[in-house]
């Protein structure tokens, strides 16, 4: 698999007299891959996101996006390929209507008007905000703002989308729908996806997970292997999904699972198998 993003021994601190926020971090993400980054607040997750599109530049180490080293000369090309949504969309709104706001990013990319009109409609529909096209972004609720911010990124159709707590204000169902929408895009065309989230059930669906702790990549692997480390995760202040906890309690109550179940379906299948053997 081609590496779409690569971090090579990256260290970063905000000021020289401040502690390192990232310490010698190396990882990569492939084209069309979904990588979830988890870790408690202050573990360096958001700093990673900001380094990826050159909002911050590292003191040591190198970052490559689609083969380009991220530096002052390449920043604008990098930003064309990387779409980013932060937790608080208020800081990202510029338009006076939802529709203008979605158009803004595309204008910067110099897209023709017909394409823009089509994409505004499609992307607002994708996030369930079509009826708000003429509303003022600032009057929307937190969750609605997040939906619009995601529509704006979908509209420019970048090769990498970074969602930094971008659905935190949505209800669980809305969050699932938005992720499903983005997965749908990923099935149609090559799209790398990085999600920074505390939603553990969302993390179980990612291709790969990186756990950050105190500025270091503390663990890296597929979700099943990560959540099998239940006690270690709890030690660094992270929770595990309901299913993981219940499976552990069940094995304590004398029902040992064959594998680490990741979702309701898998746990129910295991219980069914055990049940029919009894």
């Amino acid at each position: 698999m081609q590496h779409f993003i690569e971090f090579r021994n990256v260290s970063f601190r905000y000021r020289e007299d401040h502690p390192w926020v990232l310490k010698n971090v190396s990882f990569h993400i492939g084209s069309n891959e979904w990588l979830a980054i988890i870790g408690h607040n202050g573990s360096g997750k958001s700093t990673i996101a900001k380094l990826m599109n050159g909002l911050l530049l590292p003191q040591t180490g190198e970052i490559f996006v689609d083969g380009m080293p991220v530096n002052e000369n390449t920043i604008w090309d990098v930003r064309k390929t990387v779409g980013m949504v932060f937790q608080n969309p208020d800081n990202q709104f510029v338009g006076t209507t939802v529709r203008d706001d979605v158009a803004f990013g595309m204008e910067n990319h110099g897209l023709p008007r017909e394409v823009m009109l089509k994409r505004i409609e499609e992307s607002l529909q994708a996030v369930g905000m079509s009826e708000y096209e003429r509303h003022e972004p600032h009057r929307l609720s937190g969750g609605q703002k997040q939906r619009v911010a995601i529509a704006s990124v979908l509209a420019v159709s970048p090769e990498l989308i970074i969602l930094d707590e971008a659905t935190a204000m949505l209800d669980p169902r809305g969050r699932r729908e938005i992720m499903e929408t983005i997965r749908e895009v990923q099935r149609k065309r090559s799209l790398s996806l990085i999600t920074i989230t505390h939603d553990l059930n969302e993390v179980t669906q990612a291709d790969r997970v990186i756990v950050m702790n105190e500025g270091e990549t503390w663990m890296e692997g597929v979700p099943r292997d990560i959540f099998a480390q239940k006690d270690a995760l709890q030690d660094i202040g992270l929770d595990t999904p309901f299913v993981t906890k219940l499976a552990a309690e069940l094995s304590g109550a004398g029902l040992a699972m064959q594998r680490e179940p990741l979702n309701h379906q898998e746990l129910l299948e295991d219980l069914w198998t055990l049940h029919s053997k009894m």
Partner: peptide, 8 residues
């Protein structure tokens, strides 16, 4: 909103 699970 926005806090990690322990903070929540």
């Amino acid at each position: 909103a926005g806090l990690d699970p322990r903070g929540q």
